[in-house]
Nucleic acid binder design. Structure first.
Length: 803
RNA sequence: GCACCUGUGGCGGAAUUGGCAGACGCGCCGGACUUAGGAUCCGGUGUCUUUGACGUGAAGGUUCAAGUCCUUUCAGGUGCACCA
């Protein structure tokens, strides 16, 4: 028997799989379909991170098992290749991002192929390919035509020294990541997508999908539905200020009101405000602050009182001061609040700082002068007119009813979710397929002109005034209006990286179609995705955006299902050996190339699955990796004790059936670590016995195949297995042979273990009790005491309670 | 601050409905083989004051029985940032 030579074996089987087209998915095959998918990677210059294969191996195991179970499996791969790092590299090195992207993709492809994933490479997609982004643009165009895309002034991060707009990611500690210059907020007209119109459906339809509970919770928290009321406050100027509140019950406790600095009423009331200079200064200060500073300074509340103005509490007619403060956000609710310091901790902080009265209207807490009492479950209303004596739960609807009756307010549902800022002033993204005509406004280009390709440029830097690099492509910009034929200019902003990843799963079903984004037939057959795995960091934005686009496509009849993904799971991070996040600066990065070179792909895959609980983050261990390599070597070396017998031997039969059951079930539950542990145990049993039948060995190899596909194909071939093991049927087990005839039962006295007895597996409660009471140790212990109770749990234990 | 997650040997981690805590692997200790061992094989390995007792971050509670359920609390991680 030659030594385990993974280098030869792995190359050999990767070639064979490719030759045989073993992992090609066939649209409309007679077999049942199974569509499983991992988040397609961003092909960074750093190459594959050891975190990528954790997710890819896990679903590769599922894909391979499904194939063996007779499914027609689609397990695709592609590239989410637009994005900032590539563009910044391009700017710095004066190379076209396309060239960098090609190079990075080639490297990623090599690395993924070396790991033996069963991807259908014939369906590879690339978001930067015009044949792909033609359809990203097409979807945007439909959104535009259905009124879901609009332009609005939005603040952007502006580096005062580079004179460019920055993404949040590029703003580090309030300064520009590249030059360290000051970052301020600047307003710019941006394309927005109305995701808020889908807020309720994005919550409701979570009931129909199988996501990890924590992912559903995160989606719901992000959308942030709240039920409350809008209440009208009359101002001394005669104007009306509408506030939003979820605690209408506390209206009698309002002691002041606050508007956000950007609130439009402020300018309207300019003449009535006696300290307008001070107000202007505060507004300017707030506008100058970057988002970072505004939130960082949150500890200390700031604000300015609008002198010469007051608001009237609609509940009791009291005159309340009006403030502006940046703790009130113009983007949420109505941009104005009523402040109830006794029962809201932010209002409380503000009231203390500005010496405002704190009036208790919900009793049940400690002294409200010392701390706000925010509990809504226990308290009773006090000092609140007709609400006094009610619970908070009763008082909220009672107050809203009263407000509605009096015409002073109304019920209102609010969402934290904001519309999606869809413009980027960048080169490396999909061009937005619209033109602006002085006569016709914003007009979509004809569909026949798609894809609208990126113009060739030599310089990829954003412009001095924050405009997109595309603004420099004069020939490209100037065009004619598709509507009136007059002169028009193209939109120079590009789409965000999220765009291409919001619908890529659809393209996998029919990646080469040039007439539609995917044929009806392919979509009907393949969608929805049956199982989607990815990182926890994408469970809000990416997942929400793609669900939104999918629902829109469903509404316009392009896709047949309401939801894109039936099942969504997430994997934990792999940390460095020092238990910290892997990063170049920490010097704890593990390079997959080196691991595979030294131990092979199979050992790498096995270790990544054995490393710990799949959904938990866990540190890398070179020793642990070695242990998995040794396990594969032991499997290989078992060859020296394999006999010619086909079936299972008497003494190992049970162990084999149990292992088949456990491994299959554990794979489905993503308990890969315990599945591998079970296979290790089986190998230990083989070794202990000193011989193993060919039947037993082939079973082990089949179970191990989804995890370590190369070594197992090789052994399968050596022992005369038919065809490719990867396409061989998965194993069945005999339930009867997974249970023992005789089991060990624990005998306890007062909950402490005193003995263990061997009993027939099917013994009943009475039989167990009898056996336990006959037990010598129990008799000794019970001597002179009374047996109070005997608890017998068949299959588990007997507990004798004595006194 | 809010939300979610996690605390179990020297380490990574096991442990259906509450029912033998520590599976499996690493490391360590001992032995065999060996010119050699960072190879391989065999045995051992939670702690202690070892006829037994104690042990799952801490403190209470429920129960015949708690890693698992309840209450309080401490520590770490992740996400979001004043959401009225």
């Amino acid at each position: 028997m030659e030594n385990y030579n993974f280098k030869v074996i792995e190359k050999k089987w990767q070639d064979k799989w490719e030759e045989a087209g073993a992992f090609h998915a066939e649209t409309n095959s007679k077999k049942p379909k199974y569509f499983t998918m991992i988040e397609f990677p961003y092909p960074s210059g750093a190459g594959l991170h050891v975190g990528h294969p954790r997710s890819y191996t896990a679903l590769d195991i599922i894909a391979r098992k499904r194939r063996m179970e007779g499914y027609n499996v689609l397990y695709p791969i592609g590239w989410d290749a637009f994005g900032l790092p590539t563009e910044n590299f391009a700017i710095k090195n004066k190379v076209h991002p396309k060239i960098i992207t090609e190079k990075n993709i080639a490297n990623f492809t090599r690395q993924l192929k070396m790991l033996g994933f069963s991807f259908d490479w014939s369906r590879e997609v690339n978001t930067t390919d015009p044949a792909y982004y033609k359809w990203t643009q097409w979807i945007f165009m439909q959104l535009f035509k259905h009124g879901l895309a609009y332009k609005q002034e939005m603040p952007i991060n502006w580096c005062t020294s580079c004179k460019v707009g920055l993404s949040n990611e590029e703003v580090v500690n309030g300064v520009c990541e590249r030059c360290g210059g000051e970052v301020v907020q600047r307003r710019k007209s941006q394309w927005m997508l109305k995701i808020t119109e889908y807020a309720q459906r994005l919550i409701d339809d979570l009931d129909d999908v199988d996501y990890l509970e924590k992912i559903k919770i995160q989606q719901k928290n992000w959308i942030g539905r709240s039920e409350g009321a809008e209440v009208k406050f009359k101002l001394s100027t005669g104007d009306e200020m509408v506030v939003y509140t979820t605690r209408a019950d506390t209206l009698f406790g309002a002691t002041y009101t606050v508007m956000s600095p950007e609130h439009p009423l402020i300018e309207k009331m300019k003449d009535a405000i006696t300290n307008y200079d001070e107000v202007e200064a505060y507004k300017a200060e707030a506008a100058k602050k970057s988002e970072f500073e505004r939130t960082e300074l949150a500890k200390e509340k700031t604000g300015v009182k609008l002198e010469g103005i007051y608001a009237v509490n609609p509940a009791n007619g009291e005159k309340l001061p009006v403030f502006i403060s940046d703790y009130v956000l113009v983007t949420y609710g109505t941009g104005a609040i009523m402040a109830v310091p006794a029962h809201d901790s932010r209002d409380w902080d503000f009231a203390k700082k500005f010496n405002l009265p704190i009036i208790e209207v919900v009793a049940g807490g400690e002294d409200v002068q010392k701390e706000a009492y925010t509990d809504v479950y226990k308290g009773k209303m006090v000092n609140s007119g007709f609400l006094t004596g009610m619970t908070v739960k009763e008082a909220i609807p009672a107050m809203i009813d009263w407000l509605e009756k009096e015409g002073l307010g109304k019920r209102k549902v609010n969402y934290k979710l904001r519309d999606w800022v869809f413009s980027r002033q960048r080169y490396w993204g999909e061009p937005i397929p619209l033109v602006h005509c002085d006569k016709c406004g914003w007009v979509a280009i004809p569909e026949s002109e798609l894809p609208l390709e990126l113009p060739e440029l030599d310089v990829f830097e954003p412009g001095e005034n924050g405009e997109s690099p595309l603004a420099k492509a004069y020939d490209w910009i100037n065009t004619t209006c598709p509507c009136c034929g007059g002169p028009a200019q193209r939109e120079t902003d590009t789409m965000p990286q999220w765009a291409g990843s919001s619908w890529y799963f659809l393209r996998y079903t029919d990646p080469h179609n040039n007439d539609v984004l995917a044929s009806k037939e392919a979509l009907e057959y393949w969608t929805p995705v049956d199982w989607y795995n990815g990182g926890m960091e994408h469970t809000t934005l990416h997942l929400l955006y793609s669900r939104f686009w999918h629902k829109f496509l469903y509404d316009i009849g392009v896709v047949p299902t309401k939801e894109p993904y039936m099942k969504r799971t997430s994997h934990g991070m792999i940390l460095g050996e020092n238990n910290e996040k892997m990063s170049k600066s920490r010097g704890n990065v593990v390079n997959p190339d080196e691991v595979v070179d030294e131990f092979g792909a199979d050992a790498f895959r096995t270790y990544e699955m054995f490393i710990g609980a799949f959904d938990q983050s866990t540190p890398w261990s070179q020793q642990g990796l070695k242990g998995c390599y040794k396990f594969l070597e032991r499997v290989w070396n078992l060859q020296s004790i394999v006999t010619d017998e086909e079936g299972y031997s008497k003494d190992l039969e049970k162990a084999v059936h149990k292992t088949i059951k456990k491994v299959g079930e554990d794979f489905e539950r993503m308990k890969f670590n315990t599945a591998i542990a079970a296979m290790m145990s089986l190998v230990n049993e083989f070794t202990k016995k000193g011989s193993v039948t060919k039947g037993e060995y082939m079973t082990l190899i089949t179970l191990l195949n989804p995890v370590a596909p190369h070594i197992t194909e090789e052994l399968w071939e050596k022992y005369g297995g038919e065809g490719l093991l990867s396409l061989h049927p998965w194993l069945t087990y005999d339930e009867a042979k997974t249970v023992d005839d005789e089991i060990e039962i624990v005998v306890q006295i007062n909950g402490k273990i005193r003995d263990k007895i061997l009993v027939p597996a099917d013994i009943d409660k009475a039989g167990l009790e009898e056996l336990a009471l006959k037990n010598d140790k129990i008799k000794d212990a019970a001597d002179g005491k009374t047996v109070v109770k005997v608890i017998a749990i068949p299959g588990r234990l007997v507990n004798v309670v004595i006194k």
